[in-house]
Design a protein around this nucleic acid. Sequence first.
DNA 1: ATAATAATGATAATCGTTACTATTATAATA
DNA 2: TATTATAATAGTAACGATTATCATTATTAT
Lengths: 132, 132
Amino acid sequence: MKTLKYSRQRESIKTCLMNRTDHPTADALYLSIREEFPNISLGTVYRNLNLLVELGEIISFTCGDGSVHFDYTTTPHYHFVCKTCGHIHDLPVSMVRETNEFLTEPVPGRIDSHSVFFYGECADCVDKKMTH
Amino acid sequence: MKTLKYSRQRESIKTCLMNRTDHPTADALYLSIREEFPNISLGTVYRNLNLLVELGEIISFTCGDGSVHFDYTTTPHYHFVCKTCGHIHDLPVSMVRETNEFLTEPVPGRIDSHSVFFYGECADCVDKKMTH
DNA sequence: ATAATAATGATAATCGTTACTATTATAATA
DNA sequence: TATTATAATAGTAACGATTATCATTATTAT
């Protein structure tokens, strides 16, 4: 079997994803990490992100437009996508807990999980428009 | 400005999508339509699907795995994805109506819409396993 | 230190989708 | 009905995101 070996690049990918709140794509993460590792390969970023998803250390999702985003938070939560600034906000876990049974009840089969995305304009962007 | 012209291919794409319940991808639809139009181009399928989305006659969505699916039903509804057979089931509109206000309340901003996907195993696939 | 092998950077290949172009189909007009 | 204008097509090339390949480098065990 295959044992995992430490790599500075993988560690950097993890900490970088942990410190960001915007749920970056592989390419966005790649651009960030290049500041620390100027010649890291885009393939390395993809390979490690997929590995971390397999290990359950991170999760990936698409938010309607088809682009794949990565998230360091693995506990169940929802997302709110701002159509103006594109930022993807986390939503409180309590919402998931409250809606879980209610939502899963009328479905024709066995439910393992569900995901919810909200689309709109975040408070920051709404405020900016008010002041103009 | 540009006026729309009739095309048998576009009509076929519409009726084909209308008669299917599995929310096909562009490629799956392409394979279906080739039975009627053996030399229709994949580009034609993509072009018309995108046009129909623009016109609001159909909608498109991704269900987590990144693949883009098309749906002839444009009224708000949820989807249930079976991890075994891959079929994407429609869920009753009443669910949306019931959960709408409840879900949108605690979000930090203005909500335009939301989407919900359920993942699990549909009744058919559960039954099949029971009989083995 | 040496050996074994996992991980890397660089690049080629793949896949889904879009753009391009000469030709065909549709619709308006004479 | 014939003519003209142009939207739509089939076929193919191009594109962007992702994955695979491979020689070299880094990590770990002996």
